[in-house]
Design a protein around this nucleic acid. Structure first.
Lengths: 245, 245
DNA sequence: TTTATATCAATTATCTGACAAATGGCTGGC
DNA sequence: GCCAGCCATTTGTCAGATAATTGATATAAA
């Protein structure tokens, strides 16, 4: 079993190994994976552990398994893209600019509306949490603390402040995507340091209950980033300085 | 084991039974579920089948299980709300107006942007599929075919026409939510028959590549429904005539 | 008393080997 | 050529045993 997955139990290791293989396209949708028996032998583990791994991947929508037919990769539309594991495997397998753009296209829609909802909701605790994160961003500009963590927290806290469970759940999705993106794109200082002012602008709108203002502030912030990605895409540059917003 | 879950294999039955129990709040987050041994006894099945069910629920984010600690319900924010099973269990457990509103709040954001993307993308096949669904809606108005299926297909096909895998994946989420909502809300004729014109309006905008027009057409359609829900919420009426758009 | 260490017990994790059930394909009869 | 029934393959389920993890408890040391 892979060295990188040690520390987890056998089932988890196999889940991640197979998950990555599938996400990377080593097994294509429609393809059959090795049978349970083969997997046992290949990874040197028992059938129970193997089956439990297969059940977990089934639960995440990556595969199906039926008697006689064996184990098959599902079509991508069935994958639970919003499962943090699945998303991580996919992003790590192919951290392309294309996918970053597709992710940003979704994020724009969600965060724009979330900002408006948060402004309308006026949940004091939730807004205080956003404020905290903003403060941490400011401090981080002066070199204290982690700017990335503060940035992520800011966006997550806006989603939380909607008090809408669907938006809240999307927090973990966005968090995963951001962390992976960050790890795989070397960021340039200029991009993120410039952003505090934008974030403050967005926060102010939410704080004063200005839904329309919050919505457009969010949209403005992200369309900048999206435009950057799209210009890189058309000029075929590497994703070096494309980063979080 | 429940009669309603027969036809599936034992593991699947237990997954659904426990999933529903958790979603309905019979086991609260933080609570411990019965141990593996107890579950085996309670449902009269072997430990393998039980463990596989537990692994599947773990994969969906509903529970964790660790030696000595046992099986515990996760906090709701960890649940994979976008997993069709999980969403179904939740919606069926408590099909409240509140949740319908929260769902619509998300749907509005997503479909609005999806309409714009579809308009910009101009995928001929994708647009043809939307047109097909629209046609089926029209025919259904005259009593031929299923209006609900056509309606759902229309919205799913817009998501597909974005060619963005994230939006496409949300299709199965929205589909599940719509089906459950429909099953649990008795719809009034007047609401859905009025909607063909709106849908046509949205389609036309997409077809001619008018992203802004598509976006606002979608928003208009859904804000109507959302307003209806919110008025019902404030007047505490039952969700009888709130329906799909 | 406080702190560190060893032991214990409850629970999940894994292994083994067997049998049951489902199902795609083959074979033989018509 | 078509259909029924058999067969082999693969997953589904069962039973029972042992290993690993870990919170709690008891014990020993400072």
């Amino acid at each position: 079993m892979d060295r990188e997955h040690s520390g987890r139990n056998l089932t988890q290791q196999l889940v991640h190994t197979l998950g990555e293989s599938i996400a990377s396209g080593r097994y294509q949708p429609g393809d059959g994976l090795p049978s349970e028996a083969s997997l046992c032998e290949e990874y040197g583990i028992s059938r129970s552990a193997t089956r439990e791994a297969i059940k977990m991947l089934t639960a995440k929508g990556l595969i199906t398994s039926r008697p006689r037919q064996g184990i098959r990769v599902q079509v991508r539309a069935r994958w639970n893209l919003f499962d943090p594991d699945v998303l991580g495997w996919i992003l790590r397998a192919s951290p392309t600019l294309e996918m970053l753009r597709e992710f940003m296209q979704l994020r724009t829609a969600i965060e724009k509306e979330a900002a408006a909802l948060a402004a309308a909701e006026q949940d004091r605790e939730g807004i205080a949490a956003i404020s905290d994160a903003l403060q941490r961003m400011k401090v981080a500009e002066e070199g204290l603390g982690d700017p990335v963590e503060a940035d992520i927290a800011f966006h997550i806290n806006i989603l939380n402040a909607t008090n809408n469970p669907f938006y809240i759940q999307l927090g973990s999705f966005i968090e995963t995507a951001l962390r992976v993106s960050i790890r795989y794109t070397n960021r340039i200082k200029g991009v993120e340091t410039a952003s505090y002012a934008n974030h403050k602008h967005l926060y102010d709108a939410i704080e004063r209950g200005d839904a329309a203002g919050a919505s457009s502030a969010s949209a403005a912030m992200q369309s900048e980033a999206l435009a950057l990605i799209e210009s890189r895409l058309s000029s075929r540059q590497s994703p070096v300085e494309v980063a979080v917003v």
